[in-house]
Design a protein around this nucleic acid. Structure first.
Lengths: 202, 202
DNA sequence: TGATTCACTGACCGCGCGTTCAGCGCGGTG
DNA sequence: CACCGCGCTGAACGCGCGGTCAGTGAATCA
């Protein structure tokens, strides 16, 4: 198996995963059927099973490959050696642009937060998907900790603060993405950085 | 139909709804079957259909009755004639205690944010459940607007701010409720009020 | 006490889903 | 040209679900 076959296979996998995201975005996680995903990808239902063991694996892999892109961008923004408020801006900008470019992903993102199904499925999802969130929360929490150590921000529980910032921002960003308003990324980022850093009290 | 029959009926409805919340909390929305809900409630599957037309109505009514309790508490806190920061504290406290007393509800709460299923089901859910969120966001946004008018807080888009506050807080509260940590309500409320009002910058 | 009602039951039905696999056609091979 | 290998197909299968309804028995009535 070299170049050509690999390229074709790569392409198949990618278009099936993209179809998966689109259908989940449209119908929701539970109502997204293999048939509709196959139709959306322009292949037969059986073809999907040549590349993914079962539905669970398809969803899991789809989630992971999109999520690792998000992580890569956020990490790139975080790793720059700049003052904290610029890091925050960078991070929020990365998340915001990512969700704008991958409108179909947010629905899958939300669905994977809490594992569904029988105990076995839940254990599996917990093993594979929860870490993706936990590492994101963890990375942000570490960054906050460092900023606290440097005296750039006040001292509190960094994990709790990370949760608050991530989910608060997500809500604002996703609300934008869901509505058809073609608003700018900068607009949201400005709002969020200002609110997070300075609070709302006059 | 008078007192006794009505009381029994009321009781049935309530225990079926509570069972619904527990099963959804355990298995997730999609994997919660009528059979398991019936078992959990200690009735036969058919009995549920004496009180609810179908699964959709069961879930919808269950959601609505829990949600109206949450609304009532938040409204009570908001309507007091006190300065804004006390209102904020009251609201966050109400949400926090509610989710602590109704641990099983949070999963249903999350599931209903985004409608699933075919176009018709989605339309129905949008009609019945989305307003519940929208009114909550709206109420908070109005309160923020008034605080802005009075000069208690800085001026921004109140709706966006409401979203940020509600979802950020929810994430912190739900994270606590999901873990087994028996932490105090006050702890979270203190953290959230301080962060929202004053921001994190030193 | 026999008749009547009615809330409740759970075996049953049909549907729609995920999953399978025998077969198809096409590009390469001798 | 006949043959083969193989990526792909989609009809078919079985299962598990939501929903049904004939039957049951306890409470009530006459």
């Amino acid at each position: 198996m070299r170049s050509k076959e690999e390229v074709v296979q790569e392409f198949r996998i990618q278009s099936i995963q993209e179809a998966t995201m689109r259908v989940i975005a449209r119908k929701g996680m539970a109502a997204a059927t293999m048939q509709e995903i196959a139709d959306e990808a322009g292949v037969a239902k059986g073809t999907i099973y040549l590349y993914f063991r079962d539905r669970d694996e398809l969803v899991e892999k789809t989630f992971e490959s999109a999520m690792s892109q998000l992580h890569a961008r956020v990490d790139a923004a975080i790793e720059l050696d700049v003052p904290f408020d610029q890091k925050l801006r960078g991070m929020l900008g990365a998340v915001s642009t990512f969700f704008r470019e991958n409108r179909e992903f947010f629905r899958l993102y939300i669905s994977m937060r809490f594992p569904e199904g029988n105990a076995q499925q839940q254990r599996r999802q917990k093993r594979t998907c929860q870490p993706q969130y936990q590492t994101r929360v963890q990375r942000v929490a570490e960054e906050l900790q460092q900023a606290m150590d440097r005296g750039e921000i006040g001292v509190t529980d960094p994990r709790r603060l990370a949760l608050f910032i991530i989910e608060g921002s997500n809500a604002v960003i996703i609300d934008r993405v869901m509505s058809e308003a073609p608003s700018s990324v900068d607009d949201d980022v400005d709002f969020l950085t200002a609110t997070i850093l300075g609070g709302i009290k006059k």
